[in-house]
Computed example of a mutant assay.
Amino acid sequence: MTNSDEDLPRPTKKLLLPPPLDLLGVDELNAYIADLEAEILRVRQAIAAKAAHRDAAAAFFRTPPQT
């Protein structure tokens, strides 16, 4: 028997809670941008690694062409 909750889409999580920008100064805002850019780079690297693993698995399990 399956759980009906398993069939429902998972709610998206908000991973980053943005700070109230009105309370930050210019230097703090620039530092916040730098932190966000570093996080974006880290996420893009993780995506590239996952895509490479997926592509390698797809190539491994691909059926050879008929001759």
Rank of each mutant, 00 (worst) to 15 (best):
P9M: 00
R62E: 14
P65W: 00
I33Y: 02
D7K: 03
A58Y: 07
D22N: 10
I33R: 09
P64N: 06
L41S: 05
L17T: 11
Q45I: 06
L23R: 10
N3D: 08
Q45M: 12
L16N: 06
D35P: 01
D5Y: 10
M1G: 13
A38D: 13
L24G: 07
F60T: 00
P65R: 02
A34S: 15
D27N: 06
R54W: 00
P9F: 03
K50N: 08
Q45G: 13
M1V: 14
A49T: 09
Q66W: 14
E37S: 13
P65D: 04
A51G: 00
L41H: 10
D27H: 01
V26S: 11
K14D: 14
G25A: 11
H53E: 08
P18E: 04
A31I: 08
R42W: 10
A46I: 10
S4G: 02
R62L: 10
A57M: 09
D55C: 05
F60E: 01
R62S: 13
P19R: 07
T2D: 04
D7H: 05
R54H: 05
E28R: 04
P11A: 06
T12G: 03
P11D: 07
A46R: 07
A52E: 11
D7G: 05
K50A: 08
R42A: 06
E28C: 07
E39I: 08
A38C: 07
N3Q: 07
L8S: 08
I40T: 15
A56W: 10
K14L: 14
L23Q: 08
R10E: 13
P20Y: 03
A59M: 10
F61H: 06
Q45Y: 12
K14Y: 09
A46N: 12
F61T: 03
T12W: 02
P11Y: 01
K50R: 15
E6C: 02
A49S: 11
A31H: 05
